[in-house]
């Protein structure tokens, strides 16, 4: 096992705070689900819980979880390397025979392992929706895969910035800023591009391919695509691009992951580069 990963897991799961955190997360998720079920049931004229409403509840939980991933991951990963530097433990680590790749991967996996545990621990709560129908196991798997993938993407950004930036606080702020841009920035840009095209377009029906290239970065739009096939149809209609947006999202971010990790690995021992 990767020594850094082994040590970090030991440190993280030794602390009681970790388990208190999981407890509160599961409590919050349970309360949210119970409250949703209550609202949906009372608002239903028949007094029954319909499969369509169960689906709505699942979507709500999935977006809640995505929000959590986007909010927590920068905090967990934005200081993995810079905090070692600030704590003066990095120089010793770099004199060991571990490769830069092993150190970076160990740091990344250990920092997101807590979130993975949170998500896995919440699986039984999600399973409640199966009692009422409306969601297929494939959709559940897709949502969880998507959460893990988003976590990995944001985690790679965190590791990248904490390697390049010396101060943890600056690195974290940068990671949060990039995350905010991915979530809100790309949505706003897509909307603006669409509006501009709408105003100046001559052809009917209007096709705005640029919207596709900003929307494909947005995890919210891609998650919505998992639940609603109409989202894909609408995007095709607006942009004229038939390539599935989820596939573009995965490919683009896979490239981002590889690039982030490569830059992080190359810059971990930046002082060893000639001319540094």
């Amino acid at each position: 096992m990767n020594p850094v990963l082994n040590k970090e897991l030991k440190l993280r799961f030794r602390s009681g705070k970790t388990f208190v955190g999981i407890l509160f997360y599961l409590l919050a998720l349970t309360l949210l689900m119970v409250a949703l079920m209550y609202v949906l049931r009372t608002s239903s004229p028949s007094g029954f819980f319909k499969p369509q409403e169960s689906r709505l509840m699942f979507m709500f939980l999935a977006f809640f979880q995505l929000g959590l991933v986007l909010f927590i991951t920068p905090g967990l990963t934005g200081g993995v390397i810079s905090s070692e530097r600030e704590r003066q433990t990095l120089s010793i680590l770099l004199t060991t025979t571990q490769s830069s790749f092993t150190i970076v991967i160990g740091k990344l996996l250990s920092s997101i392992s807590y979130l993975v545990l949170l998500i896995l621990a919440s699986l039984p709560i999600y399973s409640f929706v199966f009692l009422f129908g409306g969601i297929s196991p494939t959709q559940l798997a897709q949502v969880f895969f998507f959460s893990l993938f988003t976590m990995l993407v944001i985690g790679c950004f965190g590791v990248l910035f904490s390697t390049l930036i010396r101060k943890t606080i600056v690195s974290m702020v940068t990671t949060y800023s990039v995350t905010l841009f991915i979530v809100a920035g790309t949505a706003v840009i897509s909307l603006i591009l669409f509006q501009i095209a709408d105003i100046y377009a001559v052809a009917t029906p209007k096709k705005v391919p640029s919207v596709y290239f900003s929307a494909m970065f947005n995890p919210g739009i891609v998650l919505a695509d998992v639940f609603e096939p109409t989202v894909s149809e609408q995007i095709k209609e607006i942009t004229g691009i038939k390539f599935p947006i989820w596939a573009a999202h995965l490919i683009t971010y896979c490239i981002v992951i590889v690039l982030s990790l490569t830059i992080s690995v190359r810059n971990l021992r930046a002082n060893m580069k000639k001319g540094s």
Binding site: P3, K7, L11, R87, Q88, I92, L93, T97
Partner: peptide
């Protein structure tokens, strides 16, 4: 140099041993 919190002396050496 700094040390890691919540790591025992023998675990500290074990970590670096594994790192080598």
């Amino acid at each position: 140099f700094g040390v890691y919190d919540q790591l025992k002396a023998e675990e500290y050496l074990d970590f670096y041993g594994a790192s080598y």
